[in-house]
């Protein structure tokens, strides 16, 4: 619901392990709102969002949130922290060990000691991707993952996404561009 306007009335879909789903639609169609609902930030006016795993079923937003890796419009970086500090923060916040490899995997190894304020938009996005890697969540919700990335960056993210699906992860991405994963797509 936006105002009194109904968004995605009667929408139903399922994504299984190892699958990616591209959510497509014009601006204002509700792509971001859908991702925010799955993440549990936004409560749906009607209907259910269920996450099934080996441990069981959870329809609770709080429960669901614990399985989600989130890449929103913003990268969630602090200008005052260095790249390494920022990544360690994300890792520790998720109860994981700091992982120096993650920076290498997103091509930021040389920038490790650089404060985030000096990163370019593309580098910021790469650091946000590294956050997804260290948080080790099975479900990735990506809002415009290709935004601000150059060709090399887009190649990198495609590779990371393919790897994530290959390991049985789930990806739901709001995007204008094809994901290139042989995925299904949902038009809003």
């Amino acid at each position: 619901m936006r105002g009194d306007r109904k968004l995605f009335d009667g929408l139903s879909f399922r994504v299984t392990a190892g699958q990616a789903l591209a959510v497509e639609g014009a601006n204002g169609a509700g792509k971001t709102s859908l991702l925010r609902m799955i993440a549990g930030f936004l409560a749906p006016a009607a209907g259910r969002i269920v996450l099934k795993s080996a441990e069981g079923e959870s329809a609770e937003a709080e429960e669901r949130g614990k399985s989600i890796g989130w890449l929103g419009h913003q990268d969630g970086l602090k200008p005052q922290l260095t790249v390494r500090e920022q990544l360690d923060f994300f890792a520790h916040l998720h109860g994981r060990k700091a992982d120096a490899n993650a920076l290498e995997r997103v091509g930021l190894a040389r920038q490790a000691e650089l404060p985030c304020r000096y990163l370019s938009a593309g580098q910021r996005r790469r650091l946000a991707l590294a956050r997804l890697l260290v948080s080790e969540r099975p479900v990735w919700l990506l809002d415009e993952p290709f935004a601000a990335l150059d060709t090399a960056g887009q190649g990198l993210i495609a590779q990371l996404m393919a790897r994530h699906c290959g390991h049985g992860g789930i990806i739901i991405a709001a995007t204008h561009d094809p994901l290139g994963l042989g995925n299904e797509s949902l038009k809003l």
């Binding site: 993440a39 549990g40 930030f41 949130g65 614990k66 989600i68 890796g69 989130w70 929103g72 419009h73 913003q74 990268d75 969630g76 970086l77 602090k78 994300f90 916040l93 998720h94 109860g95 956050r131 948080s135 969540r137």
Partner: peptide, 17 residues
């Protein structure tokens, strides 16, 4: 507010904390 504006708050909200 700072965490809200730069998107950190969403990440923190989805963390185990």
């Amino acid at each position: 507010q700072g965490d809200f504006e730069d998107g950190s708050l969403e990440v923190i909200a989805l963390s185990p904390l």
